[in-house]
Nucleic acid binder design. Structure first.
Lengths: 174, 174
DNA sequence: CCCATTATTGCAAATTATTTGCAATTAGTG
DNA sequence: CACTAATTGCAAATAATTTGCAATAATGGG
């Protein structure tokens, strides 16, 4: 039984219905190798069904999130939007590296994290149900480029001082 | 030299000016033991200067963020808003545990994370410049309560099925 | 110590991501 | 095939955050 049928089954079990739109969104997700935003998923799915609506995409994504079929991530330095991670059901515990220059995301397992969790509980008590670990840095290929050509001028995280932020200025012409 | 003077100095160094509002916001931040939202900082600061404006709070916070004086965090399951962390300059590398029931945040150091970073680089190359680690679970005191009284009914993360999300419904009366 | 320069503020309006009410549609059931 | 309730599309509502602009205020120089 393939992934979509599996999801459909879980859906039925709770009184849900498998619709054309939901199938389309599931198929779109199945083809993703990245971490798209709701808008991106909408655009990709829309190529096959132009009258698909963005609300439907959001509703479907929230539903999949509740089902644990997709995960959500927020990355620093981005517009305050959510990215969806179609890979959670395949590899429940994976984490993310994000390249500050090319924005590539690398998913990696971190079994050692269990030790960190245990450490935490030993000190503070309680229980840990889930964990989110994100590394930020340069991926190998961007690192090479920087080493070859020197620091790239469009570095989005460059600190420019208090009154001149890269994207959001204080409202004065510079 | 205290923290505020230090920040002020860095500000001057880049052509910035220390204003009443900025000092007020800095003082407010210095008293925080939690991770407030911009709105919360605004409300607290406003008690001493009622005509302070929310935009000013945002602008000041972004400026402090660029300076590395405050950090920002987004927690799962919250409205898509940012929380600000006044503790970053004091302890640059600390991480967060968030209790799913009482929302308490515990900050903890994780020296072992260095091993994880090294692990990653060994496998994938590149460099790691920063890391964000968040644990979600129950804090010791909520765990006790749950063990004593049974699962709490208001569990905000409870999975309720596809068509009935806790907060955002699909638009149908249930 | 006052003035000029220019960073900063307050305000209101704009943006952006996301959610929601509702009438029309449609999947699944008998 | 008809019925019922889940789902959709649409448009409008929220909510967090940013921005343009005129007015204000901090600093450096006379």
């Amino acid at each position: 039984m393939d992934w979509i049928t599996q999801v459909a089954e879980r859906l039925r079990a709770t009184g849900g219905r498998m619709t054309t739109q939901r199938r389309l969104i599931l198929e779109t997700l199945a083809q993703c190798t990245d971490h798209p935003t709701a808008e991106e998923i909408y655009q990709r799915a829309r190529q096959r069904a132009p009258d698909l609506n963005l609300s439907t995409v959001y509703r479907t994504l929230r539903w999949l999130e509740d089902l644990g079929v997709v995960g959500t991530q927020r990355f620093e330095g981005e517009r305050p939007q959510e990215r969806f991670d179609p890979a959670v059901s395949a590899q429940p515990e994976h984490h993310h590296f994000r390249c500050r220059l090319c924005n590539t995301i690398i998913e990696f397992p971190a079994p050692l994290l269990e030790v960190l969790k245990q450490d935490f509980i030993t000190h503070y008590g309680g229980t840990i149900e889930s964990a989110s670990l994100i590394f930020y840095g340069l991926c190998e290929s961007c690192l090479q480029k920087v080493e070859t050509y020197g620091p790239l001028s469009f570095n989005p995280n460059a600190i420019t001082g208090p009154h001149e932020r890269p994207s959001h200025s204080t409202g004065r012409a510079s």
